Computed example of a mutant assay.
Amino acid sequence: MAIPINSDVIHTPPLASATVMVVRDGPTGLEVLLVRRHGNSGVLGGVHVFPGGKLDAADRQVDPAALDRTAAELLSALAEPGLDPDTAVGLHLAALRETFEECSLLLGLHASLSASGDWARLAAQVREHTLTGLGFAAAVQRLGQPLAVSSLLPWSRWVTPRQPSVTNKRFDTRFFVAAAPAGQDASHCTFEATEAVWLSPRAALERYWAGEIDLAPPQIMSLCQLGRLAGVAQVQAVARSRPPALIEPEPFDQDGCRVICYPGDPRHSRRVPVWDGPTRLTYRNQRFEADGGLAALLG
């Protein structure tokens, strides 16, 4: 991953966005869904990421009666001072929409519909409606399905620093976790991605270390945390047990290398850690590495 090692400062405000760590219990333990972005993508081209994207204006304009949780509950779950209810709703809708657009998964769909195969028919109808200009939320509502925002649990909030280390765009991204809907098959959007793959967090980090896939720092550190959990139930329990962690990386240059530190690191302005494990990544050997190498990431 080529990164700009410079002292430029981005003055534009970060774009609100949402991403979803879709998890399932695999044969050997927890697995998470990753999609590889097209190499010509304007953001993180060729990198394996969790499905997600920017908050659209239409995401804020959903009928509250169509949600299976109230706006007040969604606002409380995000635990962000100053956040308004419409944006809280919009971030949850963006998470549902982007997961569908990038992976064809309808999160929160009733298990009987997924098991019977009706999800494929419903997904095709949602896609058909959106192609005619009907928004995702309205398309789901037209089919008589709830907008299952309750399927999403806030996990963390990542705010891109003003000094770039990976991309020259800034994002204020809310990370959610969601259990993979039983009976549905993930398939990548050919316009935005080149593959969708289920990997254990450990396998994803091992493949990254071997140079087989590329990951950005938020994915590296999130996989590091997921790798310490045994399965979907434990992931959900952790998400419910505390407010989402605010992560504002602070980059600096040391010995010609870019270092990104996180809360709890001696160089970070917030000395209280928000996770177990490494608190910094250093860009060397054409990748971001934790002190202690792969073993530190794997815990």
Rank of each mutant, 00 (worst) to 15 (best):
Val238Ala: 12
Asp265Ala: 06
Gln225Cys: 14
Trp198Tyr: 08
Val232Gln: 00
Gln236Ala: 13
Ile260Met: 14
Val232Met: 08
Met221Leu: 15
Pro201Cys: 08
Glu192Trp: 09
Gln219Phe: 06
Gly227Glu: 04
Ser200Leu: 01
Ile247Ala: 03
Cys224Gln: 15
Tyr208Leu: 13
Gln254Leu: 14
Gln234Val: 07
Ala203Asn: 08
Ser187Cys: 13
Asp265Phe: 02
Asp253His: 12
Pro243Trp: 09
Asp255Leu: 09
Gly227Met: 04
Thr190Cys: 04
Tyr208Pro: 10
Ala216Ser: 11
Gln254Thr: 00
Glu250Cys: 11
Val197Pro: 01
Asp214His: 08
Val238Met: 15
Val197Tyr: 05
Pro217Ile: 12
Gly256Pro: 07
Phe191Pro: 00
Cys257Arg: 11
Ala230His: 14
Arg240Trp: 11
Ile220Cys: 06
Arg228Gly: 10
Ala230Glu: 06
Ile213Trp: 08
Ala210Thr: 05
Leu223Val: 05
Gly211Arg: 03
Gln225Gly: 11
Ala233Glu: 15
Ala203His: 12
Cys189Pro: 00
Phe191Lys: 04
Ala203Arg: 11
Gly227Ala: 11
Val238Cys: 03
Ser241Pro: 05
Ile247Pro: 01
Ser187Glu: 12
Cys224Leu: 10
Arg202Pro: 00
Asp214Gly: 15
Trp198Val: 09
Leu229Ile: 09
Ala237Leu: 01
Glu248Asp: 11
Leu229Asp: 02
Tyr262Asp: 02
Leu199Gly: 09
Ala210Gly: 09
Gly211Val: 13
Cys257Ala: 11
Asp214Tyr: 01
Pro251Ser: 08
Ala233Ser: 15
Tyr208Asn: 04
Ile220Asp: 09
Pro201Ala: 07
Pro263Asn: 07
Tyr208Thr: 04
Gly231Thr: 01
Arg242Gln: 14
Trp209Asn: 13
Trp209Phe: 11
Trp209Cys: 10
Val259Phe: 10
Arg240Thr: 13
Gln234Leu: 03
Gln219Tyr: 03
His188Ala: 04
Thr194Cys: 07
Gly256Asn: 02
Ala239Trp: 13
Pro263Asp: 08
Ala204Leu: 10
Val238Ser: 08
Thr194Asn: 12
Ser241Trp: 09
Glu250Ser: 15
Ser200Lys: 01
Ser241Met: 07
Glu206Trp: 01
Ala230Arg: 15
Asp214Ala: 15
Val235Lys: 07
Ala204Phe: 10
Gln236Trp: 01
Ala210Lys: 12
Leu246Lys: 02
Leu215Trp: 05
Ala193Glu: 13
Gly264Pro: 10
Glu212Gly: 05
Val259Asn: 12
Gly231Val: 01
Leu246Gly: 03
Leu223Gln: 06
Pro201Ser: 02
Arg207Met: 07
Tyr208Gln: 05
Phe252Ala: 02
Val235Arg: 05
Glu206Met: 12
Leu226Pro: 03
Arg240Phe: 10
Tyr262Ala: 01
Gly227Leu: 05
Cys224Ile: 02
